[in-house]
Write a protein that binds this DNA or RNA. Structure first.
Lengths: 219, 219, 219, 219
DNA sequence: GATGAATGAGAATTCATTCAT
DNA sequence: CATGAATGAATTCTCATTCAT
């Protein structure tokens, strides 16, 4: 089944050459559709992102899409999942040269990586808001919904870990992580909708300011 | 020009009795439509809020609506404007019995009033997100957009004033107001989309926590 | 509301000239659509009878149809209802010159009228089979279903009355009416599907034969 | 020519061992598909019986089906053919313990067997109506159509024989057989569509009543 | 023989908006 | 002012069938 490409690496373990080739092809085509979907979504936004348009850009007839996805929402879910993967990578790689540095520096690096990812990729935020709207977005199976939730949480783990590392108790670390997340989200909203201009403020500067205050609270 | 009734008070300044009567009638009918729109929007959400449904509830035919609004978005804008009025009222009345209290208490009361308004009225948040998405939402004239922006800012003024009152410089007060706003928005997003459950946190508690830390920074 | 034209005669009782004109126009347009639907249904059968095709033949866009009918099934229901009206008329008028005749002659005249109606109008049979398929055809409200059932029954009443007139007890008359109905339906099926050719028989002759035997049983 | 497997016994007469094996295999696979089709058809009805679903249940890909049938209708034809076989079997076996009984009892037993078969297997009736609709159903070759007609006729032969046995002339026996067939079909229609409820009658009781009257006419 | 990707036509609805009346 | 009929474009999704592999 082409439709469940998630862990194809394992599935391919003992595949025949032919099956392997087909799976690979399939994934390439799935990726093609996802690329088209992303481009549509980013250019035309939610409203313009119709199956027709996605199919057209992918060079497919509308019906063909259903060989790779069960419905429109699943495409978005796949897009979001992939976006969260990139986010996770961004946060995981935040330490970079600073890997040897002290915990406070690492905390800041990771939080900033999170912030910068969404600051630099506004469309990824839209994606998240679209699908994270409501407890269980229509069209998504509970499994898919759960998976996306898990991915989101995994993304924030490196920040939480560092807070614990800095001496916070588990409970406090979770609360603080949530607060950091919320603060970032709020600022990013203001930033991307340009409402922040009303206050003549800069989102990134404000987020750094928040981290400054945080650093003072956690010695 | 029945369609731009916003500042009708000024327009009416030198109106003839007949024109005045008509304008008044017009506004009453506009209000009727807005009532219908609000009820639709609150009951069925954005998706279900079709012009037809609004017209039906207002006792009008679909076409008649266009005598009062240029398009569907304008109705939403009017709804949002009215929502912002209610928000402003909520914040302005926050002092309540505490009016005689010290500045820190007032700051907290006002910030909490803002937070609570959106916590208790999720639909008002939806409205805001729908129209505040993007620099100049489709279907809205720059004037209308500006007006909504102004209303939003006016809403936060009481908080900013109190920060100045507490000794912050104008610039710092604006920054802090923005930060409070952002933090509230971020938490409210997590709250209404129920994502906050992932972290097993409570939005209001976290917001109060934020205000606690703020109070320590501003003695 | 144009959509419930059923008892428009009563509704029009005290209508203003304008309302009257509009109602009349409306019914004419409804009739236009029904004509188109009938022609589609009769030419292309069930499968080809799409809303699109009906709209095209009626000179309407697909969406316009929905001003007159709530869905596709309702059109068919209206078609069937109208067909049953014609059937009823045929049976009611069966006595004709024979009105003065003896009961046995009248019974035969009525039964034959029923039979002939469906023999001469095969499409009306298709219509009936389509909508009378299953206890409550999808898309039909219970009310509509009930109405059609009632119409069907009313159609057979003149036959039943005559059987009572001939001395049958109520219960026997109902059973016999049902049997006559079933026999007619069975023969008509064989006739219209041309299966009767296999037996080199003539449907009408067989039905008359059935009535002959019946006459002998009921002296 | 795998696709016209109907009289494979003759075709195999002088087949090479290899061809024989292949033909046998083929028929087994055809049967597999038919089993799947039957299960789909009985579970989901005509509407839900898509080629895809049939293929899935048969463990085939959609395309593979076309190696065994030229189109969807042909599958239904095969299903109907098989249904008629079962019907024939039911009628042929009707005599049962009554085989030694008098002709009137046998006539009744056979007619009732016919009736009961369709009363107990509504889906077999649907199948028949689907394909016996119109002189030469779409998608069916004249040959196939002829074959199904023959099968249907063969089914009624035991009844006709018994009528002759009871003294009816050939012509009368055919007419009476047709009438019995029609009466059964009409009642079964009323029964399966539940219309018979309108008259508060029982289909089987009415059919027995018909046979009672018939018995009196044929001493 | 079998696959399954792809087509292309088609399905019923919905809706904001326009405009003659 | 108000009507409501009409448009026309759009929506997602389904399916029998074909065909390169």
């Amino acid at each position: 089944m082409a439709k469940s490409s998630q862990d194809s690496s394992k599935e391919n373990a003992h595949a025949t050459p032919r099956a392997l080739r087909e799976t690979t092809l399939n994934e390439a085509r799935r990726a093609l559709i996802l690329d088209a979907a992303r481009s549509v979504f980013f250019e035309l936004g939610l409203e313009g992102a119709s199956l027709r348009e996605i199919a057209k850009r992918a060079g497919y007839s509308p019906g063909a899409i259903y060989n790779y996805f069960n419905n429109r929402e699943e495409i978005y879910a796949a897009l979001l999942s992939e976006s969260l993967e990139r986010l996770k990578e961004a946060v995981d790689n935040a330490d970079g040269d600073a890997a040897e540095q002290a915990a406070p520096a690492l905390l800041r690096a990771r939080a900033m990586a999170f912030f910068r990812f969404y600051q630099d990729n506004p469309q990824d935020m839209d994606l998240g808001f679209y699908l994270f709207n409501g407890a269980q977005p229509r069209g998504l199976t509970p499994q898919l919904n759960q998976q996306l939730n898990d991915q989101l949480q995994a993304t924030l783990l490196p920040i939480q870990e560092m807070l614990i590392n800095l001496g916070l108790k588990e409970a406090d670390a979770v609360a603080e992580t949530t607060a950091i997340f919320a603060h970032a989200v709020g600022l990013l909203m203001l930033h991307h909708t340009k409402r922040i201009r009303l206050f003549k403020q800069d989102a990134q500067a404000l987020f750094e300011r928040y981290l400054d205050f945080l650093a003072r609270r956690i010695p």
